[in-house]
Design a protein around this nucleic acid. Structure first.
Lengths: 183, 183
DNA sequence: GGGTACATGTAATCAGTTACATGATTTA
DNA sequence: TAAATCATGTAACTGATTACATGTACCC
């Protein structure tokens, strides 16, 4: 076997994007990511320039450099790339979910915080999640027809999560206001 | 002002742990993390050795080296450390939640996958989230009395999330079985 | 008395981030 | 034609991870 596991999650994201959206530039990937996976799996756009280059080196992507004006690099997936992606999609996703939420982290250390700060935290988190929820609803309305069913499914999870989180923080806000547990 | 923003999230986790659990060793932190924040904000134990050292250097933690047998380093928070933690807890947590879930990522690329693989993915994810859910319920039962109210609150979010995710994947499993959308 | 699990750390590497830099288009 | 914004990249740095390494206690 040729290369053993040189691929990171980012690699597969790129492979997946290129595979789905035909010949595509880094910038176009950036735009796609910005209103889809970027919401739950963010990463800086610089990786959308660096990673495809690596993948070309590994023979998993091909590139054509535009001749006209801007010499954009447009990537397309190769047979090897498609196979790698397929293998990844077929293998089990064992690692458990990470929910990286600064608000939750601060809440975890709630005992160390002043009550006012907890109230402020809960207020702001409640609002933030509410807004995010509404944003997702709007996204769904805007792209519901054009997006694929599975993309929509991930949006659906996001929506449910944000609704749940908004409710949760409303409860926390009440508790914090009531002044429970400033032990 | 002395040091400008040399602190990462990990730093605050350590500060928070040390502040909450009095004089504590890295290993004890590791154990605590393993059954609390580690579930949603994981990081390798090596940081629980490296980071406290840094914080001592910054004057935010103090350390006593045990004389007996193993020369464990036991950390306690300093006034400066407490202040830094307090400042962090008081400032708004603006960054939105990241939900790093490999299963979701693969689902996002569902169109690229074979139906059998989608079914397998959904099956396995459903089970994994179900198990995680049960684990959280058990944790609650086990530490419900001893844990602080706010720690329990974060566990509660985890529980709600896993329940939601388990339901979600059950739905996806149905859809995948039905063979919808292999467009 | 040797094996296994618990406990405690260190060092090298690297993926991902931050920061910088500049070209092309639009708009006012 | 200046300013702003969109588009396209590169380079340096570093926090976090991986991998290694060793000690101690227990138990069979």
């Amino acid at each position: 076997m040729p290369e053993p596991q040189k691929l990171t999650t980012t690699s597969y994201v790129v492979l997946g994007l290129v595979s789905a959206r035909g010949p595509i530039t880094s910038y176009e990937m950036k735009r796609t990511v910005a209103r889809s996976i970027g919401y739950f799996w963010p990463f800086p756009h610089s990786q959308l320039y660096a990673e495809p280059a690596r993948l070309v080196g590994l023979g998993l992507l091909g590139e054509e450099v535009e001749q006209t004006g801007r010499k954009r690099r447009r990537f397309r997936i190769t047979a090897a790339g498609r196979e790698a992606l397929s293998r990844w999609l077929a293998e089990p996703a064992s690692e458990p979910t990470e929910i990286r939420d600064l608000g939750m982290l601060k809440l975890f250390f709630g005992t160390q915080a002043r009550r006012e700060d907890l109230v402020a935290l809960a207020t702001e988190q409640h609002l933030a999640h509410q807004r995010r929820y509404e944003e997702y609803v709007a996204l769904h309305a805007a792209f519901g027809h054009t997006a694929g069913l599975w993309e929509l499914a991930t949006l659906e999870v996001g929506t449910r999560y944000e609704r749940m989180a908004a409710e949760f923080w409303a409860e926390i806000l009440e508790r914090a206001r009531a002044g429970i547990a400033v032990s």
